Structure formats: C-alpha cells, structure tokens
Simulated assay, not measured.
Amino acid sequence: MDQLPRLIATDLDGTLVRQDRTVSARTADALARCTAVGAQVVLVTGRPIRWLQRVYEQLHGTVPAICANGAVVYDPVDDVVLRADPLAPELLAEVARRLRAEVPGVRLAVEITDGRQMRHEADWPLRWEAGDPDVRGIESPEELFSLPAVKLLARAGTQDPDVFVQVVAGAVAGLAEATHSSSSGLAEISAAGVTKAAGLAWFCARYGLRADQVVAFGDMPNDLPMLAWAGRAVAVANAHPAVLEVADAVTLSNEQDGVAAYLEELYGAAESAA
C-alpha cells in the first residue's frame, strides 16, 4: 500500500472500544480527522445492530457498519439494512441438530430481524442484556428456527474458546461458518461464506474501492478474514496470537487508543496539508 488508505475498517470490542465499553475522545477525534481528509470509516463488528447506538453516541457522527461478522451491512443515517445474508430456517434447524448431537450441553440463541432482536433457549446465560425487551427466551424449540437468523450463537458452559470453536466448526462443516471473539467459549455461527471479509468486500465493491485501498484493525479470530483481505492489516497489542501473527503492523492496545495512535501517524501529514 503506497498511498493513504481510502477506507478505514475497524473492529469494535477489544480494538476500538475499551474494556469499560467506551470509545475515547482521542479515538473519536482521530476518526473524524481521517474523515475530514477524505477517508471512509466503516465499523466491522460481530455486534448486532442493536448494540451500535452507544458507540455512535461517542463518535462525531454516524458511519456505516458491517455487523454480525459480515452478515449485515447497515446504513445508520437512514436506519436501513443495505444487505443481509442470514441462515435460512431449515438450515438453522439442521445446524442445531448437528450441534446438539455432537456438542454435549450446547445451548443456542439466534440474532433475528437483521440483528435487532435476539431469541434464546431458556437456560441461555444472559448478562448485560437481561431485561432488554428485544431479547427474550423462546416458548418452544421450533420458535428458535422460525425466522432467518443473521447469527446463531452456541455455548456449552465456560470453555477454552479456541478449542470450543474448533469443535463447533467440525460439527457444522459444509453448512456454516464458525468463529469466535470470546474469552469464555461463545461460538458465533454464520451462513456459509459469510465473514467480515465478505461483508467488507461487498461494501467496497458498492463504492468502487479495492482491497489495496483499505486498512483494517482487529484483535480476535473473527477478524482474521478481514485482515487477510485488506491491503494493510493492523493488530492492537492486546490481540489474539493468531491475529498478531498475520498482521502487517501492531499498534498500541485498545486501552491505549491504539487505533487512534496509528491513524494519527498515518494521516497526520495529509491532515496538515488539507
């Protein structure tokens, strides 16, 4: 990549967002300055749409988002989904059948209505979403697969996340993609071919941008396809070992505003000339 990137693609949790779920003022300022000199910023996240508002409140304006690990491309200005690539109900049912047969104690949840709602089995462990009206338990097993889902989530107690996702990936091989961004054993399952890279590639094609015009930031295994696709791959210092191994560069941790630090150096000269 000989020229400044025209598009900045960044993961959220563990990359742009700090442990306390905030985006620093320095990071928000850095993204705004990059936008001012002509770069497009895109959030590329495993999060569903309903988790984006708090991030937007901390940025200087809204930017497009690729959610659910590439399954949803979202325009927050008009609050519309530009593209969705969900698991069909019949496919969900077959994936669930395989998981229940091959993964002892597995518990399932689905992100539906493009990630605006979640449905989960009765013993699914809720954390910060307890009490959210868009998140509720199912009344029958069939309800879990009554609608297309942009993501199927699987847990089986606290597990080594790398080991658990390998087990899940083996169970759904040939039907779906499995990845993780968890430290406690949460597998994230998408339709076959759906990754952050696929969602970002679709977005870039829509606006006439090439992979070699993109710089991407990430920290976890679900970021690996995006980092491999982008012209420049940057890991934060706190990243998973697999991410650190493939990155073209390593910046400071998310707690130290690593994305901002990298962008300040990369775009500083362009900002001065603008």
Rank of each mutant, 00 (worst) to 15 (best):
V167N: 01
E142H: 08
V150A: 09
A154F: 06
A122N: 08
G131C: 11
P125M: 06
K151V: 06
A122R: 14
L175S: 01
P133L: 13
L126R: 10
K151H: 04
V163M: 08
W128L: 06
A178I: 03
Q166S: 08
P125A: 01
I138T: 12
L153G: 00
R119C: 04
V172M: 08
D160G: 09
A176R: 13
G137H: 13
S181P: 06
E142P: 00
G157Y: 12
R155G: 00
A173G: 04
G174N: 10
V135H: 04
L144C: 09
T179F: 02
A176Y: 15
V135C: 15
D123G: 03
A149L: 10
A171K: 11
A178W: 00
Q159K: 15
M118R: 12
V163S: 14
V167E: 14
K151E: 02
D132A: 13
P141S: 03
V135P: 03
V168R: 10
R155S: 02
M118V: 13
V172Y: 04
L175N: 02
W124F: 15
T179N: 05
R136L: 09
G174D: 03
H180Q: 11
L126A: 05
A130G: 04
A169L: 00
V165C: 15
A156M: 05
L153R: 04
V163H: 13
G131A: 11
V163Q: 15
A149I: 08
R136I: 01
M118Y: 02
G174W: 06
M118I: 15
F164T: 07
A156G: 09
G137Q: 07
R155H: 11
E139W: 03
E129W: 14
T179W: 05
A130E: 14
P161H: 12
P133S: 04
R136D: 03
I138V: 12
E139I: 01
T158I: 15
A173R: 13
H180G: 10
P148Q: 11
F164W: 07
D134V: 02
G170L: 04
L147Y: 03
A154H: 08
T179E: 01
A154Y: 06
R127C: 02
L153C: 08
E129S: 04
E129G: 00
H120E: 01
L147S: 13
E121S: 10
D132F: 06
A173F: 00
L147F: 09
A156R: 07
T158C: 01
F145V: 13
V150G: 07
F145H: 15
R127N: 06
V135L: 00
Q166E: 15
W128C: 00
D123H: 14
M118E: 09
G174F: 06
A154C: 13
G157E: 03
S146W: 07
L153S: 10
H180S: 15
V163I: 13
A130M: 11
L144D: 11
L152N: 10
A130N: 02
G174M: 08
L147R: 15
D134F: 01
T158S: 04
T179H: 01
W128F: 15
T179G: 11
E177P: 05
A171G: 08
S140P: 00
D162N: 15
A169Q: 14
L153N: 05
A169W: 01
G157L: 12
M118D: 00
G170S: 13
D162R: 14
L144H: 07
A178L: 08
R136F: 13
P141W: 12
D123R: 10
E143H: 10
V172D: 02
T179D: 09
A178E: 11
